[in-house]
Design a protein around this nucleic acid. Structure first.
Lengths: 264, 264
DNA sequence: CGCTATGTTGAAGCTACTCAAGTGGCGTGG
DNA sequence: CCACGCCACTTGAGTAGCTTCAACATAGCG
């Protein structure tokens, strides 16, 4: 199951983090919607090994600092960007989590992705210079702002950075085709199992627990993402619990039998 | 409906075509699986305006010629590449059509995309240096071979080419999220209508008829792509015909009422 | 502490699937 | 040229699984 929703390991995916110690999520200057800028610095960032995959040398990394020098707070429920907004930057998620929502004129909406700490948002905007979806914070979050035209310029000079950006784009394509496979050919049980294992794997890759999940999104959002109704998500989780596969306490889910989930 | 499966206009998507007059699909040198190389030349290609969106000047276009100098025939049913193959090149589809198939260890397979003349294949391979899916020709087809590391090198020198590649990657991301939306939230009727309108729009963008479609893929392949069974595809097409929306004669489908299809 | 959100569970209904039979088109070989 | 077989496609009947509708429980927040 797990492979369906795979996202690349963080080393492949992410660019430009702040140092964890530097971050203050409750920073009183942060006025979320307007997105007040804060100073960022990749060279001193504790996450830099994960973020750039150790590809860059010190000289190149300090050049990256000239590009990624701001970060933004986004409060729970607020949008980092909305569909139709002019595309300027991509965003590295420093802390928190987001959902992306694709909308349709007739009012129907679908959650097209969940983004956890260390992942990159906004790649959808490159092709048309406008964002194609809304990105909404699931909790108070912080993102590094990466102005894309500056990143492009740097990519023309630093080959390993160029490769990193290409891989990041390509892995988003591969991730989405995994979701397509899931939506087109798995039943409800398999979708939910795949979802849980995927969140687990992504957390684990960042050093968090493999089995203790805190699902920041609602059942309805999970259902939207997985192409099913919230009642079905809820029923499926209950059944998994009855079968001893997981333990559910509202948004806190413990995976008790990873192998069995994978075999569903 | 149509927007769900949208692909970017050709000017956004494609790189490096041969001149139509130069192409000989029955060229006797072509030994498909091995992929015997033929000479390609973008500068003299009739499609170059569409392919590069007129972005490049003559000097830059002849530099592109040094990168894209081969093309390959692929016979119906044969693979351009397979999942797991080492990634070397991306491919501009000069003539013909392909499906891409994502596979899973337990034997389940899903069609993840259809590619028509003028579209680009192989972007999934960048992130892992291995292709993530099989690309199978739906008819005898010809592709321009674009060695990716050479394209990357050229992108570091030609800004407009770099932008083009980034947009191409991003629009594949946006296309896939459209399919996700379709799979997660549309009923069978809407999926089939969206599929027909999408093929129509892509043909039309290349100067072909908007209403006369020749579906090179089987009902089973359509069903796999749309997340439904072949019988349901067939039934839906039959009902559309009964309702006067389309005319079906096996693989030849005529769209009689585009607006009504869009309103489904 | 009460209100609203979110989540759980049950029963009925409908969509799309499964299984099965039959049709039509195309290429091969007599 | 026609008969044959193969494959793709069509159509029907019965069914499984998910959705819908509804009632109720719980948690989070002011």
């Amino acid at each position: 199951m797990s492979e369906y929703l795979q996202r690349e390991a963080p080393s492949e995916m992410h660019i430009g983090f702040l140092d964890a110690e530097v971050l203050d999520p409750l920073h009183r200057d942060s006025a979320p919607p307007a997105g007040v800028a804060h100073k960022a610095n990749c060279s001193s960032c504790a996450m830099r090994a994960i973020c750039m995959g150790g590809n860059l040398n010190d000289a190149d990394r300090s050049r990256l600092d000239t590009v990624i020098h701001n970060w933004r707070m986004v409060r729970r429920g607020e949008a980092l960007y909305r569909a139709g907004d002019a595309f300027q930057s991509i965003y590295a998620l420093r802390s928190g989590s987001f959902k992306t929502v694709v909308s349709h004129q007739n009012g129907c909406e679908q959650v097209s992705g969940f983004f956890l700490t260390g992942e990159t948002l906004g790649l959808d905007g490159i092709c048309t210079e406008r964002h194609a979806c809304d990105a909404i914070a699931l909790e108070d979050s912080a993102v590094c702002v990466i102005p894309f035209h500056l990143l492009e310029a740097l990519c023309r000079e630093i080959r390993s950075l160029q490769q990193h950006v290409h891989r990041m784009l390509s892995s988003e394509i591969v991730r989405e085709s995994g979701v397509m496979l899931l939506l087109a050919s798995l039943c409800a049980d398999q979708r939910v199992a795949a979802f849980l294992l995927n969140i687990s794997a992504r957390q684990h890759a960042r050093g968090y627990s493999r089995s203790e999940l805190t699902l920041r999104m609602t059942r309805e959002e999970i259902g939207s993402y997985l192409g099913m109704k919230l009642e079905t998500v809820s029923r499926t989780l209950s059944r998994f619990q009855r079968d001893g596969l997981i333990d559910v306490k509202g948004k806190r889910v413990t995976l008790l039998d990873l192998d069995a989930l994978d075999r569903i």
